[in-house]
Amino acid sequence: MATVAEWVQGARVRTLPNSVAPVLVGGGAAAAVGGFHVGFWVLAMAVAVALQVGVNYANDYSDGVRGTDAERVGPLRLVGSGLVGAGRVRAAAFACFGVAAGAGFMLAALTGRWWLVAVGAVCILGAWFYTGGSRPYGYSGWGEAAVFLFFGPVAVLGTLYVQAGRVSWPGVAGAVATGTFSAAVLVANNLRDVPTDRTAGKVTLAVRLGEVRTRTLYCGLIAVPFIVSIVTSFNNPWLLVGLLALPIVQRSARRVVHGEAGLALIPVLRDTGLAMLLWAAVTAGALGWG
């Protein structure tokens, strides 16, 4: 029987910046055009966080039943470790998806934008089929593209639109930045797992590219948010505060460039997530303030 602490580890709470950051940026972009609505913003955050935890449990289940987690390094896997039966982890994933669907339905009802239900359904399907189903797209190199899409344009612009009823150029720039940050987290994760994924037949983008090009890709992705901060600062100088997150990712980039692998890459995942969260928080504040 797994403990509460082990269930929390299985939920991989360190990945939550991926879901929190875009909603912060979307809220800041809404405030910049005078459209911030605290109730809608809270519901959007609930959707994002519930989906994130749900996809983490879904990945734990799907990878566990496939045997992909048998030799993995990194966070605790509930199914792969044998601590929890696969059915219980799958049920936890579906419960989280249910919470996300409920919050999303409330948001659609309150705003009158019923198309949000369709968007939410696509997000849930994307979360499940990342590693679930007979042909998971996470096993064929499309994970980073999906992460960019769902944690960038969908999350940021969706949060902005349900509040303000419009999309803005700062919102689009913020969507690109948070999407590349999230993709960088997954690139670092998959770089860590290249040896075991290759053995298990999980053909991630990192496996396709090889370690050298994957390390280059990571450095390119983490540069994008800071380029966005500089470019958008011409219209709002406050947005330069996003550069405060730069020292954190510089530390991560050094580890990646110097060829660290396996467990030594876990701090890279942590620091990339922290940099994303800091960048999103200060950028959202600058958007609202400016």
Rank of each mutant, 00 (worst) to 15 (best):
V53G: 06
V53S: 03
L107S: 00
L76F: 08
S62V: 02
A101F: 11
A121R: 02
A118D: 04
T111R: 03
V42C: 05
V55E: 02
L51D: 15
L78C: 05
V49F: 12
V49R: 02
A101T: 09
L76T: 05
G104F: 01
V73E: 14
M106I: 09
V119C: 04
V55Q: 03
T68E: 14
F94R: 06
R72E: 15
G126S: 08
L24A: 02
V117E: 15
C96Y: 08
Y61Q: 11
G34R: 10
G74E: 15
A109Q: 11
R113W: 15
L24K: 00
A118I: 04
A44C: 15
D60V: 06
A32L: 12
V25K: 00
R66M: 04
A91N: 13
P75H: 02
R14C: 02
A48I: 01
L51W: 15
V84C: 05
G54I: 07
A86Y: 14
P17S: 12
T15P: 09
W115A: 11
G39A: 11
V53K: 04
A108C: 07
Q52N: 11
V49G: 02
G126R: 01
V53E: 08
V79T: 05
V53P: 10
G112P: 07
R77F: 12
L107W: 05
R14S: 14
H37G: 09
V20G: 02
V25D: 00
F36W: 12
T111L: 10
R113A: 15
Y57E: 08
